[in-house]
Design a protein around this nucleic acid. Structure first.
Lengths: 125, 125
DNA sequence: CGAATACTCAAGCATAGGCTTAAGTAACCG
DNA sequence: CGGTTACTTAAGCCTATGCTTGAGTATTCG
C-alpha cells in the first residue's frame, strides 16, 4: 500500500485538472463508460482514457471491464481522505484563529483604559 | 478575478506536492518567515521560496514583507473553497449511493419470494 | 465470417514543474 | 560604512504531463 503522503500527491494531482474534475462531476451522478465520459470534450478518446487512468491510479475512481466497454464509477474512500486532510489543517488553523481572537478581545479590554494598540496580536513564533 | 475552475486548478496543484503540504501544516500552527519554513527541509532556500510563491498564487497562503523578512500565513478562503467542491461531489455521490441502497433493499424484499437476482442494481444510464 | 465499436498501447512532441547554482538587492547590526 | 542576513531573480537542467496520431486487440452485430 502506498504511503499516505504519496496517496495525497496522486489524489491532489488528479484533482488539479479541469477535465478530470469534470469527469468526476459526471461520475458523481452515476457510472459511465470511457466513451460516454469523452463525449462532452473535444479531445481524443485516447486522452480521456489517460485521464481515466490517472483518476484510477489516484483511487478517486474505480473501473471494471465489461465486454468491450469499461465502466467507471466514483470511489468514496480517497475523496474522503482528501477532505479529511483539508479539514484537519483548517481546524488547526481555526483553533489558532479563535485563540487569537480571544487574545485580541482581551487586548481591547486592556486598551479601553489606554491608547490605541497594534493591529497585530504579536504572538508570532 | 480568476474563474472558479482556474482557482481550483491552482489550489489542487499547490496541494499536490508533499513539501508544500508540509509548509501548510507548519503555517496552520502559526505564521512564519520563508527561512523558518525552509529549516525542516534539505532543499535550497530558493526552492522553498518558489513553493511559497506557488502557494501564494493559489490563494492558500498570504504573505507580507516586513523589513527584510517575509511573513507567511494561512489564508482560509481558498482551503474552504476546495473543501466545498469536494463536499459537493461527495454529497452527490452519497445521495446516489443512498438511492441505490434503497433500490437494492427493495430488490431484496422482492427477491425473497423469487430466485437469486443480479448483484448489480442495474439502473445504469 | 466480416465490419463496426470501444477501448488500449506506443511513440513523439511541446510545455510545465521542481531543483540547483550563481548572482543580485534590501534591511539590519556594530 | 561594511558585513551579515534574508530573501529574490535568473538561467539551466532534467523529468513529468497532456495531447496527438497511428496502430493494435477484443467484442458485438448482421
Amino acid at each position: 500500500m502506498l504511503e499516505y503522503s504519496a496517496q495525497l500527491d496522486l489524489a491532489f494531482h488528479a484533482l488539479a485538472d479541469g477535465t478530470r474534475r469534470a469527469i468526476l462531476e459526471r461520475l458523481s451522478r452515476g457510472p459511465a463508460s470511457v466513451s460516454e465520459l469523452a463525449k462532452p470534450f473535444e479531445t481524443s478518446l485516447a486522452a480521456i482514457h489517460q485521464h481515466v487512468q490517472v483518476l484510477e491510479a489516484s483511487g478517486l475512481i474505480a473501473t471494471e471491464k465489461r465486454g468491450r466497454t469499461r465502466e467507471c464509477r466514483i470511489s468514496a474512500e480517497t475523496i474522503m481522505r482528501v477532505e479529511h486532510w483539508l479539514n484537519e489543517r483548517r481546524q488547526l488553523w481555526e483553533q489558532r484563529f479563535d485563540r487569537l481572537g480571544k487574545l485580541l478581545e482581551n487586548n481591547e479590554f486592556q486598551n479601553m483604559a489606554g491608547a490605541g494598540g497594534t493591529a497585530d496580536g504579536g504572538e508570532h513564533r
